[in-house]
Amino acid sequence: MSELKQELKEKIIEQLNLEDVAIEEIKDTDPLFGEGLGLDSIDALELIVMLDKDYGIKLADPKEGKKIFESVETMAGYIAEHRSR
């Protein structure tokens, strides 16, 4: 699980061009949206594509993403349970 979390942090930084953020700065339970990392709805769409492309998880409704993308921890939990690749 901690490997997956590390992988997710790397991917989030790369995919969302968060050049000024270091991996260590993202805590597992930090909120990704709003106050925490400050991601927005376009980032959410980018993350949905990442779930599909890298883990074979298709989310049809962007609203589902809200809970999944709360933090790296919730993301990792959801991916571990639903991944098909």
Binding site: Q15, I42, L45, E46, V49, D52, K53
Partner: peptide, 10 residues
């Protein structure tokens, strides 16, 4: 047409 992300389109 797979795995496209919105930023470039926007």
């Amino acid at each position: 047409e797979q795995f496209l992300t919105p930023t470039r389109f926007i």
